[in-house]
Amino acid sequence: MTWLDGLRFDPIAPLLSSGHPAVRFWAIRGFLPESAGLPAATAGAPGEELWDLPPVRRILRRQAANGSWTYPGRRPRASTEYDLLETYRQLGFLVEMFGITHPHPALAAAAEYVLAHQTGQGDLRGIYGNQVSPNYTAALIGLLSKAGYSEDPRVERAFSWLEASRQDDGGWALPLRTRGRKLDALDDPHTITGDPAQPFSHLVTGIVLRAYAAHPKHRDSTSAQKAAELLAARFFEPDVYPDKGRAVDWTEFSFPFWMTDLVSALDAISIIRPGFRSEKTDRARHWLAAHQEPSGLFTVHLLRDRFHDLQLWFSLAVSRVFARMRS
């Protein structure tokens, strides 16, 4: 496996033998397409055999008639649309883990619910109240792009907004943070206009780049190329804003991707700029290789969710990164 140079152990064998049907499907599709008679993982949606797995059925049973999912926890901020946040979370499971796309009526209903939150400017608003959120706009648009909505004019309008909302340095940041505001500004009914002269946030930029990586046209844009390089230069450093102000935040992981960490960043960068290497991306790969078990899987700080096979999913994500960033 010369394409996985830098890893001490084979990570694909445990993914194939895990017994997890979705993990095994993506491992075959991504790493053994010829032997399985399947197209490469980037070629399109999977077969519908994943769409009827028990975890998918459990998620879909809880979908509301309007296409959303009801947030299960406390709702401390009256201005926050918590059901939109929960819908984002559930769409991550459905799209990233089980490959559900727009022909599925549940996905179509969820997409309409999400896009109903689009403003006239093109961003998606609600999770931060009336404040602008390039990170959640991009996160939601990225999932819809993966699910087959890349040519939807509403998605294109969101990307136009993202292009126009960049900082002067080429990255993205929360407008309220560029004005020195704290999170109590989320309850401010007036939308805060950002200061584009302030530096980019790698937390926000990493999430935005995931949307660009998911879109077949926008991943090749000059802005995405530049932002990928900016993001890589920030590896292992604290963000300039307080939301991810610890260097250790780079090594706290989740899947589906949520915040910006080493693997989510490398995943987007390796799609947007294939073959890009730097001292910091090499350092990140060496860090990940050092956290591989003899079994081939990776042991890191994984932020928990309801799926007890998170190590398998994370190891699949790391393997994809190593496969793209070939020596």
Rank of each mutant, 00 (worst) to 15 (best):
L302Q: 04
Q292F: 02
P274W: 07
S295T: 10
R306N: 06
D309H: 03
R277K: 15
W258H: 15
D282P: 03
E279H: 11
A289R: 11
L302T: 03
A268E: 15
L312M: 01
L288T: 09
D305H: 09
F298R: 06
L297F: 00
A289K: 06
T299G: 03
F298C: 01
D282M: 08
S295P: 02
P274V: 07
W287T: 05
H308P: 03
I269N: 07
S270T: 15
P294Y: 02
A290P: 00
L266Y: 11
I271D: 11
R306F: 06
R277T: 13
L297I: 00
F276Q: 09
F298D: 05
S315Q: 12
F298A: 00
L302E: 03
P294Q: 05
L302D: 05
F298N: 03
D261V: 06
L266H: 12
L297Q: 01
R277S: 13
S315Y: 04
R306L: 05
S264H: 12
T281G: 05
D261W: 06
A268H: 14
D267Q: 13
W313L: 01
R277H: 13
R283Y: 02
E279F: 10
S270W: 08
Q311Y: 00
L303K: 08
R283D: 08
I272N: 12
V300H: 02
A317N: 09
